[in-house]
Simulated assay, not measured.
Amino acid sequence: MQIEARLAELGITLPKAAAPVASYVPIVVHDNVAYISGQLPFIDGNLVTGKLGQDVSLERGTAAARACGMMILAQLVGADIALDRVAQIIKLGAFVCSADDFSDQPKVANGASELMFDVFGDKGRHARSAVGVPVLPLHAAVEVDAIIALEPA
């Protein structure tokens, strides 16, 4: 219940976990490690689409990455995994739909990374990739996946 209290303190309400858009599962847990499929950014119920450096601002992209991070947490909750079981955010992978000359992918990915730091403190510190790509599913601006260590149930 500590993490739920922390979310409330931060004014964060998690969205409902999104259903997969293709033939995969959103989360797999093996040996107390949760592997969370790439999550897309929904802000106020709308998918954030477009390319960073073209028709999506850095600020909007950072907010989109944060929304992906919130969806990662929602997937844990949706799988009946208490957020207090998170032992460590191991790695985030951020994919940023980017114009050819856009190179601030790490700044965009900070939206998800900083959310994890804010919510989990030192347990939220993680390794990360931030990769520019020409297109993402459903023309999303950002997609973030995660590997998360869990305390035994």
Rank of each mutant, 00 (worst) to 15 (best):
M1P: 14
I3Y: 07
A5D: 12
L7T: 08
A8H: 10
E9N: 14
G11A: 06
I12Q: 09
L14I: 11
P15Y: 01
K16A: 09
K16E: 08
A18E: 05
A19H: 03
A19C: 00
P20I: 05
S23W: 12
V25N: 05
I27Y: 01
V29R: 04
H30L: 05
N32A: 10
V33G: 03
A34W: 03
A34Y: 07
Y35A: 01
Y35G: 03
I36M: 02
I36H: 05
G38E: 00
G38V: 03
L40M: 06
F42M: 04
I43D: 00
I43F: 05
D44S: 12
L47Y: 05
L47S: 12
T49S: 04
T49P: 04
G50W: 02
K51H: 14
L52N: 02
G53C: 02
G53W: 00
S57M: 05
L58G: 07
G61Y: 10
T62G: 12
T62C: 13
A64V: 15
A65T: 15
R66C: 07
R66T: 06
A67D: 01
G69Y: 10
M70N: 09
M70R: 15
M70Y: 13
M71F: 09
L73H: 08
A74L: 10
L76K: 06
L76Y: 00
V77L: 03
V77Y: 06
V77W: 04
G78L: 14
G78R: 13
D80E: 07
D80T: 07
D80R: 09
A82G: 04
R85C: 11
R85F: 08
V86M: 07
A87M: 13
I90A: 13
I90N: 10
L92R: 06
A94Y: 01
A94N: 00
A94P: 00
F95L: 15
F95M: 14
V96W: 01
V96C: 04
A99T: 07
D100S: 15
D100F: 11
D101F: 07
D101H: 15
D101V: 12
D101T: 08
F102S: 13
S103T: 05
S103Q: 08
S103R: 03
D104L: 14
Q105T: 15
Q105K: 12
P106R: 08
V108M: 09
A109K: 00
A109V: 02
A109P: 01
N110Q: 15
G111R: 04
S113N: 10
S113Y: 14
E114V: 06
E114R: 10
E114C: 09
E114Y: 08
F117A: 02
D118G: 11
V119K: 09
V119D: 03
F120H: 11
D122C: 02
G124S: 02
R125P: 00
R128Q: 10
R128S: 10
V131S: 10
G132I: 05
V133I: 07
P134C: 13
P134K: 06
V135Q: 14
V135M: 13
L136M: 11
P137I: 08
H139D: 15
H139E: 14
V142G: 08
E143C: 15
V144R: 02
V144N: 01
D145P: 01
I147R: 13
A149V: 14
L150E: 01
E151R: 07
A153N: 13
A153E: 14
